[in-house]
Nucleic acid binder design. Structure first.
Length: 564
RNA sequence: AGCCUGGUGGUGUAACGGUAGCACGACAGAUUCUGGUUCUGUUUGUCGGGGUUCGAAUCCCUGCCGGGCUGCCA
């Protein structure tokens, strides 16, 4: 035992954030680790957020530290309690527990006091420039900005003005509090950035108490600081804000967390910006935030994704500073890997084709015992009725079948899973030439899936007894977009193209008359099933009471149709 | 255009001046009462050009390409 401990295990490679934290702990800059996840409650969390959630929660866990959930609610215009609840629900569903729930709005008074301090120290001033003037004087990417004419106001005057701003003595947008830094800075964020704006807007938590609201840059770092966050792990877009984050902490002389940025990822055949997701919801391109095609966590949940699969995915794609393009297959593979071990197997027919077994006794019903999982016996067994009239999958019959088609065709024999071998004798067609029924014979000696003569059949297909079948509707979901990157190029944009032009018109196919084995009649809303040979399915959580609607989470891997 | 930042097989990620490795995918074979699963094997890479060095994915210069930045959004 003791020797084992002494054995040097090959150290796992550590990503740049772990290395940074290791160094901070070693140098004594921080004694312990605390992180935070700081969403703005103005929309629902999506798979991209899941990565940020995993990074912050996992780092805290790894270093035995704490994590705060902080609502970054500094813009009353867009935020709502409704979103707060959604965020809590989604993070909990992912399986994470935060140590403390915080709101930036709880810090408004303290932030205000700090703003006064900055004014007194000559580090902030009230500016009367209009938004347009301010934009113009900020300069641009190549040219420095010019100082505001109000930049040299005295501390006393600034303080008085700022207090009047708070007291509501000025019109919305007529004045603004700015940090006095450097209008010539190559970093735009340092060109006297806005700290407070006047905005008479009802805030969902502070009501009408305030008419001035702090900007992100003036709220975020200090919020981290107040909460004792050691490592503020965020995405790369905030890299240019770090100097400002640091500047405020230094000028205020407060606890100074370290911000570290990592790359977000893009998912192929999907979009991830809140703006676009909101637009798709509002314009009715999808059913809502929780439409099973959406990359939102609530959408993925309704689609049938497991929390584990999403967490594994986040671990899987790793963490770096390089822009990641992740193939959506990768997410699906994580799901399949997880569900392979978790999903009980059942039989269901999506597109039914009637089969009559002509030599099977008319009124006979046999009860067949089927395994609920091919390798894990703890799933147990269930009983499946078998009778003369069945449904099989339309895809499992082909009239002029190629040699490698291991399914049913005239004169060919297949195994009905768990039941008998059948041979197709005849295909009955309707007036339009569509095959509507198959007449087959069965080998009574093949019960259980093998025969005394030991002959082998290449194919095994699933089936449902017609008389016992449960009718159901199945929603087949596919990727929302037809393009790997739905975002049009600049030249395409000039022609008026938008990401919406890449919407996949076949992202939802509804199958109205699926047939399920009777076992599924009482399926609960939480269980993800594998419909054998088809894929993974879950009951739609939004279906009306008693309504049988299944959502296909993902299909099984398929090395046959790919070739064909 | 300026500043910041990044570039390793198809994808993602290691290697921190000393054997380019891992995962996923793809492909091939074996097993299989799911064309699934599982197992085995194969394949493909340091953005280009210079330099420093005994030795460069790694350090330097330069070019090219990608991402971010010109909100009183976060």
């Amino acid at each position: 035992m003791e020797e084992n401990i002494a054995v040097e295990t090959k150290s796992e490679s550590r990503h740049f954030i772990q290395q940074a934290i290791d160094a901070d702990l070693a140098s004594g800059r921080f004694q312990s680790v605390q992180t935070r996840f700081p969403p703005e409650p103005n929309g629902y969390l999506h798979i991209g957020h899941a990565k940020a959630i995993c990074v912050n929660f996992e780092m805290a866990r790894e270093y035995k530290g704490k994590v705060n959930l902080r609502m970054d609610d500094t813009n009353p215009l867009k935020e709502d309690m409704h979103y707060v609840e959604g965020i809590r629900r989604d993070i909990s569903w992912l399986g994470f527990k935060w140590d403390r729930e915080c709101f930036a709005s709880d810090y408004y008074e303290q932030l205000y006091q700090w703003a006064e301090k900055l004014i007194l120290d000559g580090n902030a001033y009230v500016c009367d420039l209009t938004p347009e003037e301010m934009r113009r004087m900020r300069g641009n990417l190549t040219e420095p900005g010019e100082n505001s004419p109000f930049r040299s106001r005295s501390a006393e005057e600034n303080l008085e003005l700022f207090r009047k701003m708070r007291a509501g003595e000025f019109e919305d947008g007529s004045k603004i509090l700015r940090a006095k830094i450097d209008m010539a800075s190559p970093n735009m964020n340092m060109r006297d950035p806005a700290m407070y704006r006047i905005q008479r807007e009802h805030h969902f938590r502070t009501g009408d108490k305030w008419c001035i609201y702090p900007m992100y840059d003036f709220a975020h770092g200090q919020s981290d600081s107040m909460e004792g966050v050691s490592h503020s792990l965020c995405s790369l877009e905030f890299e240019d804000h770090r100097p400002l984050y640091d500047w405020f902490c230094e000028k205020l002389g407060i606890f100074h967390p370290r911000q570290i940025e990592f790359a977000r990822f893009n998912l192929s055949y999907s979009v991830m910006s809140k703006r676009k997701l909101l637009e798709m919801v509002n314009e009715g391109h999808v059913d809502g935030w929780d439409d099973p095609r959406m990359p939102t966590l609530c959408g993925l949940r309704r689609r049938g994704y497991t929390p584990d699969s999403i967490r594994n995915f986040c671990t899987d794609i790793g963490i770096s500073k390089r822009g990641q393009w992740i193939d959506i297959d990768r997410l699906e593979n994580c799901l399949r890997k997880d569900l392979e071990n978790k999903a009980p197997r059942v039989m269901a027919v999506q597109r039914p084709l009637k089969v009559t077994i002509k030599n099977y006794p008319e009124d006979q019903v046999e009860v067949i015992t089927a395994n609920n999982h091919p390798t894990d016996e703890s799933f147990g067994t269930r009983e499946v009725p078998f009778s003369k009239t069945l449904y099989i999958e339309q895809d499992d019959f082909m009239e002029d079948a190629p040699k490698k088609f291991f399914r049913l065709s005239i004169g060919r024999e297949v195994r009905l899973r768990y039941a008998y071998y059948i041979t197709c004798e005849e295909a009955i067609k309707d007036a339009d030439g569509n095959i509507v029924e198959l007449i087959c014979t069965y080998d009574p000696e093949s019960k259980g899936g093998s025969t005394p003569d030991g002959r082998r059949v290449k194919g095994t297909i699933h089936w449902v007894s017609a008389a016992h079948a449960v009718d159901a509707k199945i929603n087949l979901y596919d990727r929302l977009f037809t393009l790997e990157n739905p975002e049009p190029s600049n030249t395409q944009k000039k022609k008026g193209k938008t990401y919406l032009d890449a919407l996949n018109s076949e992202s939802l196919v509804v199958l109205e008359d699926a047939k399920l084995e009777p076992f599924l009649k009482d399926a609960d809303l939480e269980t993800r099933f594998q419909f054998e040979r088809l894929g993974y399915y879950i009951r739609d959580s939004k279906a009306a009471e008693g309504e049988m609607i299944f959502n296909r989470t993902t299909s099984l891997r398929d090395s046959w149709t790919k070739k064909g």
